[in-house]
Design a protein around this nucleic acid. Sequence first.
DNA 1: CCCTTCAACTGGTCTGACCAGTAGCCTCCC
DNA 2: GGGAGGCTACTGGTCAGACCAGTTGAAGGG
Lengths: 250, 250
Amino acid sequence: MPKAVSFAPVRTVRAYEGIVRQVEERIAAGDLRPGDRLPSERELTTQFDVSRSTVREALRVLESSGLIRSRPGDPLGPQVIASTASAMRKLFARVVDSRRLGVAELLQFRMIIESAAGSVAARLASPSELDELEAALAGMRDAVADGYEAFSTADVRFHEHVARLSGNELLVLCLDAVRSMVLDLIATKLAQAPDPQALMERTLAHHRRVIDAMRAGEADEVARLTRQELHHYYAEYVPEARRSMVDILL
Amino acid sequence: MPKAVSFAPVRTVRAYEGIVRQVEERIAAGDLRPGDRLPSERELTTQFDVSRSTVREALRVLESSGLIRSRPGDPLGPQVIASTASAMRKLFARVVDSRRLGVAELLQFRMIIESAAGSVAARLASPSELDELEAALAGMRDAVADGYEAFSTADVRFHEHVARLSGNELLVLCLDAVRSMVLDLIATKLAQAPDPQALMERTLAHHRRVIDAMRAGEADEVARLTRQELHHYYAEYVPEARRSMVDILL
DNA sequence: CCCTTCAACTGGTCTGACCAGTAGCCTCCC
DNA sequence: GGGAGGCTACTGGTCAGACCAGTTGAAGGG
């Protein structure tokens, strides 16, 4: 098949897209960090030299993807609220409720990628990185006294730490998104667990075993432990009828 | 900690959000399918009883999440272009280039979830579903004659089929997104593979083995084969320095 | 000193306008 | 009669200007 000179498709760029792109780039580059403020809409109007409608279209897009938040009357202007992570969470949330997905899908997905992250981390982690993990675990142990909520926060930190050790940011982001979705879906139920003390103890023991397996370089064991722990922790919230989705991963 | 009656946080809903939600729901419910048209902006103005600016903010949000497309001058109105899948692809694309992720992260991620999907599918697939897979494989074999591009399309169909057999839509969507990102990143290079004939033959042989392993219920073997095939297919496009990210999964 | 009031913002929304495209009809010329 | 051209009635993209309701902080009153 003879191929003529190939041209790239031209897409006419709309004004608001340019604004979105500029702001996104500033955020990605770190010029704009969470908490920072954008100039007011009227001010942006002059900076970008477009009308207010155009500025607003751009802001709405940025807002819908979770990057900024604007509040009427705020003299400081729109606020940069987050990085890519929250955009990812927002999208997952949309997917989950538009497709009517439930805990079953989310938990299965989480078991898959979290165990994989653990297993990759086990192969890559240096002794000093493992010591940091150890510190995160110590943080959890300290948090036990402060009640379940504090413990849960420290626990999330531990999981995030493991994910980051995998060295794959995509993994980190997806894991963060799916973890927060799971927690959202069952937050109320989890807070009233029958015996939080026992749950916390068990979690500590599990994390202990994970670190040990990492030190021993037993990647598959780390993966297995991770799946097992997630299952133990969350499987009861999966409707009976779909339970097999998560059971088969054990 | 005594807990008073708990209220849900109120968020004042902006007009455009209501529009976005309604359209999203219609799409999710299947009332609006890809290819369908929305009324023109001016028409929507009267249907929603808001101003055109508000309608436009909603349309921009829908467009930015890949659900619709609007083209100036089109007398038929904005077009519904896709479902959640393209929204997911769009987000992944944004994440990948804002975080400057490369083939390494994407391929590692894909190897993880695609092999997991395969292994779940192996445990769940009924004989008749396996026959459908068989048909997809036959489709690939037929496509060999039509050249590499046609083959590649049929190949994607096969992979999608496997993913769907896992029964987890989240897996399907993520896989679709990451697959299309990988293909985007290396499309040009892949088209000029040195020996497409051999590549196609090898792919066919691999898929054959995957189906056989599925019939035998060897879930772990399916996972291993999947990782291996992806690695063989794409690893060369991963920069040398990051090659280990995908190597350790073998 | 605290509390109220007020003015100067903010974003949310609306109106009405103009432009540049598109598509289909309709005319005019061959 | 048939084709090529222009005309018309739409489309979305953008703009300017207006009003409202909310927030905030400073000015003024107790």
